[in-house]
Computed example of a mutant assay.
Amino acid sequence: MRLVAVSAGLSTPSSTRLLADRLAESARGELEARGHEVRVDVIELRELAVAVANHLVTGFPAPPLATAIDAVTGAHGLIAVTPVFTASYSGLFKSFFDLIDPEALTGKPVLVAATGGTARHSLVLEHALRPLFSYLRAALVPTAVYAASEDWGSGGDDYTEGLPARIRRAGGELAALMAARPDRETNRDDVDEGDDVDALERQLSDLRFD
């Protein structure tokens, strides 16, 4: 299986990249425990910023950007992580996903996550990231992960789960959807799209009530 993580962090080192790596490791560990071989690729959008801007103007992707787009559209599962800018996803993050064919993520398991300086921006997951990938008809996992500065190294308390627990739960949910999803790239003629969507909805429902 191929798992792709997209990180829109701009600094080096980046908490956004760190969160993407930890989520990818969580999902990979769960998939390997289920007997799957997993390849993980991480796409750093900061390295593609100029190519993204040029593509928006010219309509033609440079080879590194075309490779990144192919990786996202061809993945069995996707992790998308952005820093919060002005209470939403970053412009670079949005510009990259504007270049993805609107049908390419249909039914694809996607885990969304974000990083920010304060917990008060955590609702970006619900008012910005979920609507974006719902529009693209992706199969979003129930748990989205937000990491504020104070979350790193925190174990949580009696009322809230710490960041490591949220990462484990989200990675497990993504792995479950990836493992259960038909391989529509190789079996597209054998799978009815309506049946595929219904099956994914049942799987998401099961995950919510475990």
Score class of each variant (00 low, 15 high):
17 R>W: 03
164 P>R: 12
95 S>K: 11
81 V>E: 03
44 E>F: 04
122 S>W: 03
15 S>E: 14
53 A>T: 04
21 D>I: 12
109 P>Y: 00
178 M>A: 11
114 A>V: 02
205 S>Q: 13
7 S>I: 01
202 R>T: 01
172 G>Y: 09
155 G>I: 11
207 L>P: 03
102 P>M: 09
114 A>G: 04
151 D>K: 02
8 A>N: 03
90 S>T: 15
37 E>Y: 10
96 F>M: 08
192 D>G: 06
102 P>W: 11
101 D>G: 10
191 V>W: 01
141 V>S: 00
148 A>R: 01
54 N>M: 05
55 H>Y: 03
67 T>I: 07
166 R>L: 11
197 V>I: 09
119 A>E: 04
106 T>P: 07
186 T>Q: 08
53 A>Y: 02
75 A>T: 01
51 A>Q: 08
75 A>R: 00
155 G>L: 15
7 S>C: 06
44 E>G: 15
159 Y>K: 10
162 G>C: 11
105 L>D: 01
129 L>M: 15
87 A>R: 15
140 L>R: 07
119 A>F: 07
71 A>L: 03
14 S>W: 01
194 G>F: 06
180 A>V: 04
95 S>L: 13
151 D>C: 02
203 Q>A: 09
41 D>T: 10
194 G>D: 07
125 L>D: 15
181 R>I: 00
28 R>G: 08
210 D>N: 15
150 E>M: 06
15 S>D: 12
137 R>D: 11
156 G>D: 11
152 W>N: 05
3 L>V: 10
56 L>H: 09
191 V>S: 04
31 L>Q: 12
192 D>K: 12
65 L>A: 10
190 D>I: 05
134 S>G: 13
140 L>I: 15
155 G>D: 15
175 A>M: 03
135 Y>D: 04
205 S>L: 09
